[in-house]
Write a protein that binds this DNA or RNA. Sequence first.
DNA 1: CATCCGAACCAATTCGATAATGGTTGGCGG
DNA 2: CCGCCAACCATTATCGAATTGGTTCGGATG
Lengths: 235, 235
Amino acid sequence: MPEPDGAAQETELSEVVGRLRHLIDAGRLPEDGRLPPERALAAEFCTGRRQVRRALDHLEAEGLIWRHQGKGTFAGQPPDPTTKIAAEIVAEVDPLGVMEARLCLEPSIAALCAERAQAEDVARLRALAARIKLPADAETAELWDGALHRTIARVAGNRILLTAFGLVDEVRHHPGWQAPRARARTAESARISDRQHAAIIDAIAAHDPVGAAAAMRLHLETLAAGLAQSLEGQG
Amino acid sequence: MPEPDGAAQETELSEVVGRLRHLIDAGRLPEDGRLPPERALAAEFCTGRRQVRRALDHLEAEGLIWRHQGKGTFAGQPPDPTTKIAAEIVAEVDPLGVMEARLCLEPSIAALCAERAQAEDVARLRALAARIKLPADAETAELWDGALHRTIARVAGNRILLTAFGLVDEVRHHPGWQAPRARARTAESARISDRQHAAIIDAIAAHDPVGAAAAMRLHLETLAAGLAQSLEGQG
DNA sequence: CATCCGAACCAATTCGATAATGGTTGGCGG
DNA sequence: CCGCCAACCATTATCGAATTGGTTCGGATG
């Protein structure tokens, strides 16, 4: 091919991009989301390393992957310092320790939230609470539950506390701790949580810091009891 | 010395403790505060490794050093990995936000500490409190004050909360925030703080979580008031 | 027999050398 | 002049040996 045809190269590039996308979407990647080295990808795709790098540039610009010299290419978002610390902590705490930390933080956060919530904030909280009971699967419900608690922390308006909450949240959602939480969730516990969420938001809407803290504490203690029962049942 | 005279051993132990103290106080340690290995110290002091370890136990109980297997022995407090996060959020918060976060965290931490403190922990806390009022300059007093609060957090025995506390502490000690705190410190405020520290430790020693939390809250509210006055006076 | 100490052993970490990997440049072909 | 492949560079992972705090066992001593 004597003529450097730009169009043909474009098609080959998008071809490689497509194959990489498929590779990422399929669950064949290792646990940490690491992609094969660029040289291996070039060999597998029967193309040059150049094309692979261009395709990866594309995907990186989209935020689908991240790379680091000497480290490798990974699917997903680059880890921020919070996740690093969370990973360190995960090895040193148990689920009850996490609940303990939440019981320290979140009641006070709810109180601050009650002091500072605007009407629109309350509306957002109610919308999130409504979403929690919609999905049938526990995982999606967990997701919206997390969003509700995080929003409360954000409305509280203290950056340090928000970061601290984020730290706890990250440890909580660390893989490997999903099982006991999923076991602890039943239709009955979901109903109770829903009522407790409503009570928390009511206190926040009424600008009642003490009530919000108390409602949050009750909610977390209920969750802790369920978690303890689940752990005990499993061993 | 064929006779295992307990008293003589005591004197030799305190001798080693004294030499170690001198070694730490003198500025001859490397940048990271690392002490020589136990075996080297034993050789230098012409004694056995056991005596050195006992002496180091003593100093560790005082919070003057920290050790980790395979790592070494270091002067000062064990580091927290929160520096980067602290640097990020230090620009987004004000001193009152920090006090708010402390008011959220530390009363609960003091309560946990009261539940879990052993007699030796209480002794360490009292020793630290005693050191606060010794120095004339505010900076050294601040240092020991920070050590006291951090030790309370460590005794509380929850790794997540300790990290969260470390985060707040790091933001608090960020350069540029020293001035208002130094202005807020007077002989009168130091006396008040001293009494409040004693009250907190008394509640911890009595295993009274509620009392410890209340005493800590009162202490922090006093500090917050002084800080607010200082800020207001300066603009 | 009780007590204490030193040496050996264990577990966690660091350090150094090697290999692997993303990032970059030079030379060749067109 | 452009574009690509190969070699090279900087950074990181990896693995083994040495280091270091933590622990245990046997013996010396009274």
